[in-house]
Amino acid sequence: MKFAKGIIAALLLSATAMPAWADYPERPITLLVAWGAGGGTDAVARVIAVGLEKELGQSVNVVNRTGGSGVVGHAAMADAAPDGYTLGLATTEVNLMHWLGLTELDYNVYTPLALMNQDPAGVQVSADSEYTNVNELLEAIKASKPGTFRATGSGQGSSWHVAIAGLLNASGIDASTVTWVPSDGAASGLQELLSGGTEIVPTSLVEARALIEAGRVKSLAYMSKERSTLFPDVPTLKEETGSDWEFGAWRGIVAPKGLPDDIRDKLIAALEKVYNSDDYNKFLSAQGFGASFLPGEEFGKFLATNDVNFGETMKAIGLAK
């Protein structure tokens, strides 16, 4: 028990040894995460927490509030007191779940602080698939009977479902031609792809990384403006098809609405330093996560346009209520 105490004490000490340079923060900060311990979002949150501890001189505890496809955690972020002692790492779902009719809550309930990371989706197929580029795949889908092609990688109406549906929609194909098979997440989706249960997995490249590197899965296109640094050989969707469709899962720090301006500015400055720190960048590049930063207002604008785009796509494909 002494050792355990030692480990944690060392961690806390390393965080609190820094001098506090103003009134806020006077006590530890809670960083809420709507996803489980051990997932990608949790890992990002824990790295940001370590960075914020260094910047703010107070310990930052990551607290997981999981379940309900993110609704529970995102609601907790909005319901907390806007005193700067409860922050949240919000994810793409903020702009999805209210369109699905799961909650009233949308991006307007938060004070946006900083976008910290963005992972564009790819179009992955099995390595032994006959399609060598995304145009061939889309042609084949167009000519196929509904239900011949099946895609998976996340839950019904969640991020990657919108990614593939939007791609089909933008290519002039009825989105219901490809059956969406709901899964718990990218890992079980990829398992389905390997076992021959589905044909397409439109997750981010990071999630498919181990299997792409192992030569079991290939990525045909990348739904972003620029090519990925992780796999620069994968062409962007625009290069291949000319389509303007883009989709990325993003993660950003938010606070409840009504956060005082001075605290907000202090946090934005601290987050920018965390984003530019070696530790954060080393972590992102080691994991293969996409770096992307937008402070305060700009993050807010990003959320607004992102929300409108998702809404349009989801209405077009019949997912929005």
């Binding site: 355990a4 105490k5 944690i8 809670t30 505890n61 990551v62 607290v63």
Partner: peptide
Amino acid sequence: RTLLLVPLPFGMIPR
């Protein structure tokens, strides 16, 4: 709270 970082409610008690 201290060792395992569980956010037990503070309420009216100071840290």
